[in-house]
């Protein structure tokens, strides 16, 4: 593993992104809108009482945490990776003495470092605005942090694997779009999963999407039992393993095909 090379890539990209932080903050504001809308909708709906185990304060907390988690896990590079494969700029990256994935990872870290403080600040302001009461247990915080890190990895791997399909098809963008919609629907953005009808809920628990955003949030808010948390981590680890293998295979086959045909 060439760690120093990877670190240099991250540093270089970080400086680049810092100079365009206005652009990324605009983007971050955009990514926030959807959860903010559902926050407002649910806090209006819960004005009368408790819904599915969530009262008004719970809903606000849930969505505020979801905004931060969503921002932390949202990958940005899969669009550019697919684009680079299409227009051939990937050739230069293939010639570097570091694995292909380092480029994407470097950018991911850079974008996150630029956006997260901004988003956290905005969310904190919202929290004061709604006068939320915050009680979080220390042990659930630790679990949630672990879940968050894995969520970042999982969401990145799935998007990256799809973007690698660009080696074979011109239209991987459409797939990425569908993937984004599925994340939106099944990762607890429209409503907390506890409110889903039972059948859909069961399905969502097995799919990877829940573990990209709502799982860490539910964990930190103490909405999950120990058994639920344990099985959650197990499903998550399974998906990560599967996608890591898939990414490895796709990278190898894709670059081989790319160098055989010249793109």
């Amino acid at each position: 593993m060439n760690l120093r090379g990877g670190l240099a890539l991250i540093r270089g990209q970080l400086f680049g992104y810092l100079s365009e932080k206005g652009f990324f903050w605009t983007l971050a504001l955009g990514w926030m809108t959807a959860p903010v809308i559902y926050l407002l909708v649910w806090q209006a709906a819960a004005a009368g009482g408790v819904i599915g185990g969530y009262d008004r304060n719970d809903f606000i907390l849930y969505y505020l945490c979801l905004i931060v988690v969503n921002q932390a896990t949202y990958p940005t590079t899969h669009w550019t990776t697919a684009e680079h494969i299409h227009n051939g700029t990937i050739s230069a990256e293939l010639l570097r003495p570091v694995p292909l994935i380092y480029n994407a990872l470097g950018t991911e870290f850079a974008v996150k470092i630029v956006c997260l403080p901004f988003v956290t600040a905005v969310v904190t302001l919202f929290g004061f605005g709604f006068q939320v009461k915050l009680t979080i247990a220390a042990d659930s915080l630790g679990l949630a942090a672990a879940a968050l890190l894995l969520a970042m990895l999982l969401r990145f791997l799935l998007a990256y694997a799809i973007s690698l399909l660009a080696f074979w098809t011109q239209q991987s963008n459409a797939l990425l779009q569908v993937n984004d919609t599925l994340v939106f629907l099944l990762a607890g953005q429209v409503a907390p999963l506890a409110l889903f009808p039972p059948g859909l809920q069961k399905l969502a628990m097995q799919l990877p999407y829940r573990y990209m955003a709502s799982f860490p949030v539910e964990a930190v808010l103490g909405k999950l039992s120990m058994a639920e948390i344990r099985s959650g981590f197990a499903v998550m680890a399974g998906w990560i393993l599967l996608l890591a293998i898939l990414t490895y295979v796709l990278t190898n086959k894709g670059t081989r095909k790319y160098s055989a045909t010249g793109g």
Binding site: Y38, V41, W42, A45, I51, L185, V190, L195, P197
Partner: peptide, 14 residues
């Protein structure tokens, strides 16, 4: 599905 589902879930509760 998402739009209608979102409303359905919402109006299950209220």
């Amino acid at each position: 599905a998402g739009g209608i589902g979102g409303i359905a879930v919402l109006f299950q509760a209220t």
